Amino acid sequence: MKGRNMTRWRDPAKDPRQEPKSNLITAEGAERLRGILDHLTRVERPRLSTKVGEAAAQGDRSENADYTYNKKELHRVLGRIRYLTKRLDEVQVIDRLPADTDRVYFGAFVTLEDDNGDELHIRIVGHDETNTDKHWISVDAPLAKALLGKGLDDEATVAAPGGEMTYIITDIRYRDPNA
């Protein structure tokens, strides 16, 4: 059977998308999610509800593109509100420094050096906070898993598409959550 909606079968036991995600989040990440939820609840939902009501008052809804579009947007916002509400109930906010700040743990800013001498600056955060522009990676990512618990000048080897990469940890820093 062929079709554009058909996907390749994956063994659920080996599919990385099926692995459970950690529920860790930094204090600033939780605050950002609460801010998004507040904005969607107090600003976007009422605005879209008003637009849907105005479009519905214009008459025939079957040919009313404004009504259809705004109703879809309202459903998208409501879905996002439900997701964020559920997610904020599930997450565990990490709002303290680890006991041993000389090792890599959740929330660490880590500087790595590869075999070519190139530096890579990353931060280990929860999967809700990942940001490729800032080089913030999920604690569930293979590189983060390889780094956790390691100290300065330790080597970490991680499988990459082009083969295994080895990094040396050259700096470990933490941001004080209470500052």
Rank of each mutant, 00 (worst) to 15 (best):
D60H: 05
N70E: 05
V158D: 03
I94G: 01
A179I: 10
M6D: 09
E113R: 10
A160N: 10
H39W: 09
A160K: 12
K51T: 04
K72D: 07
G163S: 12
P12A: 07
P16M: 05
D176R: 00
G35D: 14
R173L: 09
R61C: 04
M6T: 14
T68G: 07
V125D: 04
T68Q: 11
N131Y: 12
V93R: 03
G107S: 13
V43D: 13
H75R: 12
R61W: 10
M165I: 06
Y174E: 10
S62G: 06
D154F: 03
A160C: 11
E73S: 13
R96N: 08
R47D: 09
I36R: 05
L112S: 01
E19L: 10
M165T: 01
R32H: 07
N116L: 13
T101Y: 04
H39T: 12
A144F: 03
R96Q: 14
P16V: 00
G126A: 11
R10K: 13
E19S: 09
D153N: 15
G59Q: 06
E119C: 09
R4A: 05
P142R: 11
A159I: 14
N64C: 13
V91T: 07
A156R: 13
T132D: 10
L24Y: 02
A179G: 00
G151A: 11
D140H: 03
I168G: 02
A156L: 09
N70M: 13
L152W: 09
I172D: 11
R8V: 13
L88F: 07
L88T: 10
K14C: 12
D140V: 03
F109M: 08
L37F: 06
A160P: 05
E119D: 11
I25A: 00
Y105C: 02
R17C: 00
D128N: 14
L97E: 06
D60N: 13
L33N: 01
L33S: 01
A65K: 12
E31I: 02
K51E: 11
R61Q: 14
G126I: 04
S138D: 03
K145Q: 15
T26Q: 03
K21N: 02
A13K: 09
Y105K: 12
R61A: 07
R103K: 15
E54P: 01
E155D: 11
T85N: 01
R10W: 05
K2D: 15
A179K: 13
I169D: 04
H75Q: 13
G35A: 09
D128R: 00
D114C: 12
K86P: 05
N131F: 06
K150P: 03
T7I: 10
D115H: 08
D89P: 00
E73L: 14
N23L: 14
K134N: 13
N131H: 12
N5C: 09
D38P: 04
P177N: 08
A27F: 05
D100V: 07
G79W: 00
N70G: 09
A156P: 12
R175V: 15
E19H: 08
N64H: 04
G29P: 06
Y83G: 00
L88K: 06
G163N: 11
T41H: 05
E73R: 15
K134H: 12
D128C: 12
L78D: 14
H127L: 09
H127A: 04
D15F: 06
D38V: 02
G151N: 10
K72E: 15
L97K: 02
E31R: 07
A159E: 14
L147Y: 02
L97W: 04
A27M: 05
